[in-house]
Design a protein around this nucleic acid. Structure first.
Lengths: 188, 188
DNA sequence: TCAATAATATGCAACGGTGCGTCTCGGTAA
DNA sequence: TTACCGAGACGCACCGTTGCATATTATTGA
């Protein structure tokens, strides 16, 4: 039989403790300075238990991100009927996170993690601008005739999220005016 | 006097050997796996000589980037008079680099380096889409009436370059069709 | 039905290895 | 005389792996 499996089960308690520790260390130290040994210590877990289930630091962070443990708060992208204002509002929320030193560290660390692991990149893309939020909101804008019928919503979303990422790592203005200018540049 | 300075001068030979070694190691190993000791060995230089003049790996990479040693080739953004085709052509060049595994590694490593050092981020921004290239080309497009008079060229450039960066780390299509769709989304 | 057995997971601890950043040394060029 | 240089050692942190004792669990067989 295939399902016959003897021996102890994987400890869910240990798994959760590890992911929780990753989340804490990631936010405190950033991706680069996060270490497996540090996570093991904080989680009260043996290093081997980590190595048995994850192949690398980036895998660990990826799973943590997948479980939604790395974002401090959710960004809400409303649909009030006014696409432009909704997007500006959302961009301002992201700017607010990036202007806070801790938040800035989290964002850049997430980008750093994404360069090390494609899954993180994909996930980050979904999480920040994926089907759930920006693309859907743009699509609604098409239906409401606030965008042209054939508007390339996927590309517009990539442009918006990409611009945010660029501002996160390279600087650039993050005022409300900048938010409005950015949104206008993309959906006008 | 301020200019009186005795003793040996900084060795330009050592400095160049170090930067050259960084360039090689960066392209071979990527940012994450580049080590100071490896650079010192390859440059035929003492580790101390590196630590004397640079504070960190990211500083080292930043200076290397500033001297233009990290890009394999230049991307040419022509001005044939047709803004749309010029941009598509340029995006396709960037895509070509990203589709090549080595090139992909260089781009993601540059992004990783940028997350560790703001100077790198700024420089990367200029280098990839800065005043020299994309913004200037967009400005020319405004003058040629291929873009509206008040077009926010800076924001459009950020959107385009940001979208490229997002594709670099998160995947997404990189065909000629994708290039055209992206450019059309931004300048239409 | 219920011990004995076998398989699996865990914590602890140690290993050799690599790279870190600092330091000292003797030599050399301005 | 002074500041640079290369060489090399240092203690440290973390890597990824291994061995061992122990706890947990499903199968086996009396």
């Amino acid at each position: 039989m295939l399902g016959t499996r003897r021996g102890a089960q994987r400890s869910e308690k240990a798994r959760l403790a590890i992911l929780e520790a990753v989340s804490i260390q990631f936010q405190e130290l950033g991706y680069e300075n996060l270490t497996i040994e540090g996570v093991a210590k904080q989680a009260g877990v043996s290093k081997q238990t980590i190595y048995r289930w994850w192949r690398s630091k980036s895998d660990l962070v990826a799973e943590c991100l997948l479980e939604g443990r790395l974002f401090p708060g959710k960004f809400t992208l409303q649909d009030t009927g006014n696409l432009r204002l909704d997007l500006i509002n959302w961009v301002n929320q992201v700017f607010a996170l990036m202007k806070d030193p801790a938040g800035h560290g989290i964002v850049t660390s997430l980008v750093a993690a994404a360069t090390a692991n494609e899954k993180i990149g994909e996930r980050l893309r979904e999480s920040l601008g994926g089907a759930d939020s920006v693309i859907a909101r743009l699509q609604a804008g098409v239906l409401a005739a606030q965008l042209p019928d054939q508007a390339p919503v996927v590309e517009l979303s990539e442009a918006l999220v990409g611009a945010l990422m660029l501002k996160a790592i390279g600087g650039g203005g993050k005022s409300s005016t900048d938010a409005a200018r950015l949104v206008d540049a993309i959906i006008s």
